[in-house]
Design a protein around this nucleic acid. Structure first.
Lengths: 209, 209
DNA sequence: GTCTATAGAAGGATAGAC
DNA sequence: GTCTATCCTTCTATAGAC
């Protein structure tokens, strides 16, 4: 359909991939404004002309990189609570995996960059939200609904409960990590935060466990 | 004490104030990278030389502006729950006031800018956290402790409970607003979010209300 | 496709007159 | 203190050779 002048994205070009990799690392680590096309070309070991042969502009390269980074963020299925388990244990496992993901360096960096540029690139806010929090909420909500059907939880509104569960898990830890306010999150800190969040969630939604 | 070459910050200079005002609006709205010293000078109706007479560099001007914006953020005392009130009503009022603040345009913009630049300017992350979330948490925690002493709530750890209360209030609304994902927060949406948060909080920490 | 070289604009910061 | 004018660097993007 599209007779674009640019090479097809599907084409496996090593140079193109090198540009994507280098640009992703730089943009995610330093943001849009702090990274120049020179720096990207240098890091990818190509000339700027080659870079511009594959990508129309800095804006387009940035949007491409970040949009993809938002989608390839995580396989949420592996993070979700298990099914045949004690509810508290299942929630605790989910909480640990979720925090282990959202508190790690690259996820934090993507989060920062998307927030920073969501005004100038509104589609990035959308891509991040849909590929991350929204997907997670939907999956968690349906898991909670199952548990409610099985009589193990009392959940009036699974979407709201899912949002609240994830909010409780993030609580203060996530913001501090995003801002770089010490102490850096540790395994022990994560476990404590998860335990507190799960305790509160079950006190509100548990079926008298 | 300081025999600085720069004019004293305390000195009431109209030009200096004009620069501060213009720079604050621009930096907060567009971030560090998207704003040039030319643009600031133009918006403040001064020359660049004057601008540099008051501020050593773009970095210093930016840090000054954002640090101050973080401190002058809010008078939390007026947002805190009232004392002689029904607990649910007090929490609901607090929730509405808190969300009314953190969801409004300027607060969101500051939040975005600080997150974006907290890597390059770590002191900003600290200033924001201390002047905002940390202060709020401490005040809320002491209010919760009072209520617990009065037998109206059961709070094992007031700091944790305060963090959880604020997390429940923000839940999904805050992130969506930061990312610019529609729908924009409305009065009705805020009220619903507050009601859901307070219900969950009281289910977990209430004394059988 | 890929490079070197460069155009053309904009950026941060300063010199020197008043 | 304040301005105009300018320096030097860096930036995005492209032209032209191979």
């Amino acid at each position: 359909m599209s007779a674009s002048v640019l090479p097809r994205p599907e084409t496996e070009s090593p140079k193109r991939q090198a540009v994507l990799d280098a640009a992703a690392d730089l943009f995610i680590a330093q943001g849009y404004g702090a990274v120049s096309m020179d720096a990207i070309a240098r890091a990818a070991n190509v000339s700027k002309a080659t870079l511009y042969a594959y990508f129309r502009s800095k804006d387009q390269l940035f949007a491409t990189i970040i949009t993809e980074a938002c989608q390839a963020n995580l396989d949420w299925e592996t993070v979700l609570p298990a099914h045949g388990q004690d509810v508290r244990a299942a929630l605790t496992g989910f909480g640990r995996r979720m925090l282990g993901f959202v508190l790690h360096g690259r996820a934090l960096a993507i989060h920062r960059v998307v927030l920073a540029e969501s005004v100038r690139f509104p589609e990035l806010g959308r891509a991040f939200y849909d590929g991350g929090p929204a997907t997670a909420r939907t999956l968690v909500a349906s898991w909670l609904a199952e548990q409610a059907s099985a009589g193990r939880l009392r959940i009036p509104d699974p979407e709201v409960a899912a949002e609240q569960l994830m909010a409780l898990l993030r609580a203060g830890l996530h913001l501090r990590a995003l801002l770089g306010v010490p102490p850096a999150p540790s395994e022990a800190g994560i476990d404590a935060a998860v335990a507190a969040a799960v305790a509160t969630f079950l006190a509100a939604y548990g079926d008298g466990v």
